[in-house]
Design a protein around this nucleic acid. Structure first.
Lengths: 220, 220
DNA sequence: ACAAAAGTGTTGAGAGTACACCCATGC
DNA sequence: GCATGGGTGTACTCTCAACACTTTTGT
């Protein structure tokens, strides 16, 4: 702690997930500058000197997507000396989950070009962003299994079918409807919230997530 | 990415666990300088400009404990602007697990005073180190439940009784011997490795961990 | 012989998994 | 009346938890 060392730069980078067109998507922005000019990258930026890491992540998130209240979770800090050709840049990565309806990409001011990509069809990414995205997908699956974060990708009121579909997309496999609903009911985390009646078939029950549901609780 | 921002400092701080005297212990060092002079803190230091985060952690670890090969895992990055009164310091925290036999505290060159503290009797810590230690304990328990990291706190050859004791210390509760051994056997991760014969009772079988055991695998 | 830890099976409860049919609505 | 997703129960398997006595050694 005695002497001054040359300092690295610190950034936050974010893997923003949503469900769109029946697929798990990640938001990418096209880099306008060197290095990796023209390549796709996950959104991020430098941490300001007086702002917390999470504040930096939320600020960047809002600049890119216009969204304020999303689930946000720190993932991992990547700090290989060679990860950025411009010099030493350590990045603290975050993942964000959002409900596609809330996001208005065109309103974003920052990035010249931002686009949703299916996780199964990602382009070549800048820096070590591929590694960050892979890590985020693992964490996402893990969290889906053990917590209720899935609900942050749904509107306030949702049907059981919608939840099941989100799980099926994230895990890339089908679940048995009866077992899935049985499990959800036994967890006792849902409130009934009317019925959805503008559908061309039997009107499904709507549910909302109970308040103060503890985060860790073994969903599947 | 356009302009230069004032840069924060980046440190690594480590929560080093071991089992000693039947208790879970954490290594603390007494701070020789302000701020928090005289307070206990977890060991750590600045990340050098050309070294990776993990290299920095291993270097500090060796300076403090003289130990090279330990289990090391990144935990979380703490970056509240006010966490260090000297200015903006972001710390990447790690946890290390070691087998007490391998550590020789007196050989450490760096810290004036280093001592093992039971996690149940920690003194007031410097900075936000209490938060880091609490986080590390949670992660430790979690990893014990789902992976085989416990074995890195044991010598190469160990008895079933020793493993069980480590689990009992970490979880602060007793397990049923038969169920515990049954579970371990069913995982098929142990090799028999002779018997321990210098004991004043029936000689227990020794075991060693199989090579290439996958890290995640539902232990308990 | 006694102290100390090692070793070993069975039973019951609960959770997970597999599986198929009828229902209510819009068109 | 037909297409579409909604909604529901039972049987089997497997895992987890509870539980007590005998064995082998050193002293």
């Amino acid at each position: 702690m005695e002497k001054e060392f040359p300092k690295p730069s610190v950034t936050v980078d974010m893997v923003i997930f949503t469900i769109l067109e029946g697929e798990l998507k990640v938001l990418l922005v096209k880099r306008a500058l060197e290095p990796f000019k023209g390549r796709w990258a996950i959104p991020g930026g430098f941490v300001r000197i007086a702002e917390s890491l999470e504040d930096a992540a939320r600020r960047e998130l809002q600049e890119e997507t216009g969204v304020k209240d999303v689930y946000l979770e720190q993932l991992y800090t990547f700090g290989e000396p060679e990860r950025d050709p411009r010099g030493r840049v350590i990045t603290v990565s975050y993942m964000a989950l959002s409900n596609a309806d809330k996001i208005n990409l065109s309103a974003s001011t920052d990035a010249a070009e931002a686009k949703w990509f299916s996780v199964s069809e990602l382009p070549k990414l800048a820096f070590d962003h591929q590694k960050i995205v892979s890590y985020a997908i693992k964490r996402l699956r893990w969290k889906f299994e053990y917590t209720s974060i899935a609900f942050s990708m749904l509107p306030e009121k949702f049907t059981l079918g919608q939840i099941q579909k989100v799980y099926e997309i994230v895990f890339e496999k089908r679940f048995d409807k009866r077992n899935f609903f049985k499990k959800l009911h036994s967890l006792n985390i849902l409130n009934e919230a009317g019925v959805k009646s503008d559908v061309p078939h039997r009107p499904p029950m709507l549910y909302s997530l109970k308040k103060n549901v503890p985060e860790i609780m073994e969903i599947l």
